[in-house]
Design a protein around this nucleic acid. Structure first.
Lengths: 177, 177
DNA sequence: ACCTGAACACCGTTCAAGT
DNA sequence: ACCTGAACACCGTTCAAGT
């Protein structure tokens, strides 16, 4: 039994029945192993969830720099992030309620966001603050969506997401002009 | 033993040791009562938490209409909300991860926000969407803050919060002009 | 080094019985 | 109507013992 097997089985359980559907005991049963054996590969349940989130954040595919205006690139990044979160709702739901787990600035998401914000004219000393704000905003949106606070109609949610990003773009433009 | 006693004791436990510090069994012990007695006053733990959140949302004090420009009133509302959330971090942490619990449009927070957005020139059919976006943004910010994703320095957090609201104001201004 | 079983200290909640 | 004790079906994790 490897760490990879453990974490991919845990991901399967989460995708099947949410974070609350993942327990160390169920995970062990799924792997035909004693619950305590897991603790030889992972320090705790929290550590396992942190590992799963870190892996998901690392693997997230980022849109490349296509030379388009920053407004378009920011919209593309937001849409990619949103799509990714919707494809793995359990993991990203957990991650957005534990924002520490995505704090590592070397992650592709932050590198890409920094590049686009520089393009938008955000000065270097403001990059950290501005990227924190934008990520908090998008996190809050996705959390509201996954918790069913938004409309039930996916098209209306799409329009609302668009409007949200347009609002951010307008705000950034007015701050840097 | 009344519902009020139950919920105010539950709030005390939450403020002392977070949501995870509240259990039906500890709550019963605190009230010198059998754990099962609680279920004669409350349907479930979730229902109790929903009641606590609803009460907190209703009681939130809103800044009055002082005739100031919408930008100032929106900033004042955001600051009041932020302050309130910081004073009761456990309740608002739970509420922001369960946004359904603040969905009731009759709550003072929504009434006030609608009034200010109308002042800002947001057309009536857009009020619902725009207020959802703004609330999601502020929720995401507060969640990031309470989870320790933001800076440790309260002054820096204050500056970041200011910048966040200025960004929203700039975005609203560019959308309605 | 890796795995195990028994146990500890908890949970929320059901159910039948008491007053 | 309100409260109770015992029980059910779970948790995460510690610890001592096995190979």
């Amino acid at each position: 039994m490897t760490l990879d097997e453990i974490s991919s089985t845990a991901v399967r359980l989460m995708e099947a029945s949410g974070v609350e559907g993942l327990s160390m005991r169920k995970l062990a049963a799924e792997l035909n192993v004693n619950p305590m054996s897991l603790y030889h590969h992972v320090e705790s349940k929290d550590a396992l969830l942190a590992l799963i989130c870190a892996t998901a954040a690392e693997r997230m595919h980022m849109p490349p720099d296509d030379g388009a205006p920053w407004q378009e690139q920011l919209m593309a990044l937001a849409l990619a992030y949103h799509r990714h979160a919707k494809e793995h709702p359990a993991i990203w739901g957990y991650l957005h309620t534990h924002p520490r787990l995505i704090a590592d600035r070397r992650l592709p998401i932050w590198q890409t966001l920094y590049r686009i914000l520089r393009l938008a004219g955000v000065p270097d000393p403001e990059l950290r603050r501005t990227s924190d704000i934008l990520h908090a905003f998008v996190s809050g949106f996705i959390l509201a969506e996954t918790q069913g606070h938004m409309s039930d109609d996916p098209e209306e949610i799409g329009r609302t997401f668009d409007a949200a990003i347009q609002l951010i773009i307008g705000g950034l433009a007015s701050a840097t002009s």
